[in-house]
Computed example of a mutant assay.
Amino acid sequence: MDVVLSRQAASDAVAEHGWRFLLGALRTSVPVASSTQAVDVAQAAVAACGADADGHLRIDLRPDRAVLTLQSLEHAAITDRDAELARRISAAVHELGLTSGPEIGTGAPHSVQLLEIAIDALDIAAIRPFWRAALGYADEPGADGPCDPLVDPVGQGPAIWFQQMDEPRPQRNRIHFDLCVPHDEADRRIEAALAAGGRLVSAERAPAFRVLADAEGNEICITTWQGRDG
């Protein structure tokens, strides 16, 4: 039986193989030189997963990269099987003469990341159906409660989650971005944003998330998996 891994265990199991843990999934980016080579990566990844491919692997192919995602659809989480599949896929990618994982120091803007939109609400259950219908979104696998996040069922848009408000805050923006980045890229991203005119609003819950704002006070949270277990 598959064992669901903690965030720390999932990250530790795959980090040296070029994968990163982001929002309950393992992701890696494989730079390629053509669409044909991206297809080669996809074929190698599917072969490495074998019968587990359909239940664990998602693939996004571009002419310059193949982005691979692993998550157990049954558990809506990372299991020991996903970690093993990540190791198999990385070995298969290396056999193609390619590299999976971060491209730090190569001039690439980032390796992998995931964007969420956070909506502040006094009554989450009352507004959630509107956003579900308007965006054509669906319940996140394993999370269908009246206050749970929403996701694009075909993976084209960012996830939506709802932040509970205790009282109205008319002078504060009530929709903000959450950007989940690899834990070992977060500091560089924050330093770049501050150097570009941003300011640090709060690091109270670092490294899980740090709140930044632009010159007019519009906020973004730079988030990682760290600091959420326990």
Score class of each variant (00 low, 15 high):
26 L>D: 05
27 R>P: 01
27 R>N: 15
27 R>S: 08
28 T>L: 02
28 T>C: 08
29 S>E: 11
29 S>W: 03
29 S>C: 13
30 V>S: 09
30 V>Q: 10
30 V>P: 07
30 V>E: 12
30 V>W: 14
30 V>G: 06
30 V>M: 12
31 P>K: 11
31 P>C: 06
31 P>S: 07
31 P>M: 09
31 P>F: 09
32 V>E: 02
33 A>H: 09
33 A>M: 06
33 A>L: 11
33 A>Q: 14
34 S>N: 10
34 S>T: 10
35 S>R: 12
35 S>L: 14
36 T>Q: 13
36 T>K: 12
36 T>I: 11
36 T>S: 12
37 Q>K: 11
37 Q>F: 04
38 A>V: 07
38 A>E: 03
39 V>T: 11
40 D>Y: 07
41 V>Q: 07
41 V>N: 06
41 V>P: 06
41 V>I: 10
42 A>R: 02
42 A>L: 03
42 A>W: 01
43 Q>V: 09
43 Q>L: 12
44 A>T: 00
44 A>W: 03
45 A>F: 00
45 A>L: 02
45 A>D: 01
46 V>G: 00
46 V>L: 07
51 A>G: 00
51 A>Q: 06
52 D>H: 12
52 D>P: 01
52 D>N: 08
52 D>L: 11
52 D>V: 00
53 A>C: 02
54 D>Q: 15
54 D>M: 06
54 D>F: 02
55 G>H: 10
55 G>P: 09
56 H>D: 14
56 H>Y: 15
57 L>N: 02
57 L>T: 02
57 L>A: 04
58 R>K: 13
59 I>E: 05
59 I>V: 15
59 I>M: 08
60 D>N: 08
61 L>T: 03
63 P>Y: 10
64 D>G: 01
64 D>M: 06
65 R>G: 03
65 R>C: 12
66 A>C: 15
66 A>P: 01
66 A>S: 14
66 A>V: 04
66 A>N: 08
67 V>C: 10
67 V>Y: 07
68 L>V: 05
68 L>P: 05
68 L>I: 05
69 T>I: 04
70 L>A: 08
70 L>T: 05
70 L>D: 12
71 Q>F: 04
71 Q>R: 14
72 S>V: 06
72 S>D: 10
73 L>K: 13
73 L>V: 12
73 L>F: 11
74 E>I: 05
74 E>K: 13
74 E>R: 13
75 H>C: 04
75 H>A: 14
75 H>S: 09
77 A>E: 09
77 A>Q: 09
77 A>K: 07
78 I>H: 08
78 I>F: 04
79 T>M: 06
79 T>I: 02
81 R>F: 01
82 D>Y: 07
83 A>M: 10
83 A>V: 12
83 A>I: 11
84 E>L: 13
85 L>D: 06
85 L>W: 08
